[in-house]
Every structure is written in C-alpha cells, then in structure tokens.
Design a protein around this nucleic acid. Structure first.
Length: 201
DNA sequence: AGGGGGATTTACT
DNA sequence: GTAAATCCCCCTC
C-alpha cells in the first residue's frame, strides 16, 4: 500500500479527482492510534466558480489560503461550531479546488473509532457523514494544512479499483439556483455502500 | 468591534 | 420530522 504521490493531486479536473478518490484509503495516526478506512463518498468543490465553496469569487482569507496551495494538503474547518469537516486540497498552486470526504468505510482501528464516537457496535453512522468520520479519525483543525503524504494523515492507494458502473454521480442538494451548474453531478459515491452519508435520491 | 450564517449531527416529540 | 446545539469566520458598521 503506497501513499498517493504529489502528482496525483495536481489534476485541475476536480470532478475527475473526486471520482478517483473513491476506493482509496484515508488514514490518521494521532495520539498513537492508527485509524483509517476506504473512501466511499466525495463531493467536489470547484473553487472560484462554486457558490458553496469558501473560495467562491476568489475569496482569500486566513482560513481559505490553504485551498490555494498546490494539491496534496488537508483542509479542515469547523462547521456549526461542533463538526470538523475534512477536505483534500487539489489542483496546482493558485487554483482553490477541493474535495470534501463525506463517507468512509472503517477498516483499521475500528475499536478506537468506536471509543471516539462513544459507540459500542459498528454501525453505518460511525463514519457516514463528514462530521462523523472526522470525529472517528480524530481529525480537527490541528491537522489543517498538513501534507497528505505525511505521518499524521495520509491517503493511500489500496489497489482497489471501483468500476464506473458502481459509482453514482448525483447533483448536489440545494443548488437549483445555480443556473447551468445546477445539474452538474458533483457528489459521488459507491453504489450500495452502507457508509454513504445519505440515500440522497 | 459586532452580528449573522454555515459543506451537520443528535435527540426528542 | 423538527429543532437545538455551538463557535469560528467573514462581512459590515
């Protein structure tokens, strides 16, 4: 199992990259605990042209500056004051594209993840949903801007390939106002996987 | 310097 | 099904 190389993240086609991330494995090694799993749901954020992106319109702030860096970094931020959301920064330097990781199928350190989530048995909601999986992997803002080829958090290629017919591509929710971008399928997930955050049909 | 909003989750009715 | 929790960031005054 090898970590994805720097070059993988330089693709400026963020939709293509969001698809390629399905089936890859995300790991964290914090507090001496190794945890990780298979990425089963992603969502593409097209930087400057995406109204839902923090970098929409070229906004450049303390928080968003990491999105403008060359791909291969983590972008972690706090939502609703409670939940940490983990994104993969992609595209060459200057292009603030990112991929939100929304669902993970647990593989490594499941007992540790259960503890962090205060759960006793493995259920889909352990890591289904961006806030939930971040908590299970102990991802917080400390990991913001970390190199995804580092020792604390990384993404590896397990060699698993997901067939195109097993990948669902659906429009994002609540973007009906976004003109011709409204119907673009920016949310991707592995069909039938229990760790996808929502049916979202 | 202050206030509104957010890529969500959980619990309760 | 609906509502509350909760804090950091960004825009405006």
């Amino acid at each position: 199992m090898t970590k994805l190389p720097f070059s993988f993240y330089q693709n400026d086609d963020v939709n293509s990259l969001a698809v390629q991330l399905l089936g890859k494995q995300l790991f964290t090694n914090v507090e001496g605990q190794l945890t990780g799993g298979i990425i089963v749901e992603t969502e593409a954020y097209k930087g400057v042209i995406d109204k839902a992106s923090h970098a929409y319109g070229g906004r450049f702030t303390n928080r968003t500056q990491v999105m403008y860096a060359a791909g291969g970094l983590a972008y972690v931020y706090l939502c609703y004051g409670i939940h940490h959301l983990f994104n993969v920064v992609t595209a060459p330097e200057g292009t603030p594209h990112a991929v939100l990781i929304r669902g993970l199928e647990p593989v490594t350190g499941i007992d540790v993840m259960l503890q962090r989530r205060n759960m006793n048995a493995l259920k889909p909601n352990l890591t289904a949903g961006p806030g939930a999986l971040a908590k299970a992997l102990a991802i917080d803002k400390v990991l913001n801007a970390k190199d995804l080829q580092g020792e604390e958090i990384w993404i590896a290629d397990s060699g698993m390939s997901v067939k195109p017919e097993n990948i669902a591509a659906v429009p994002r929710v609540g973007v009906a106002y976004a003109e011709d971008h409204a119907l673009l399928p920016w949310r991707y997930y592995i069909k039938g996987n229990k760790f996808v955050s929502k049916p979202n049909t």
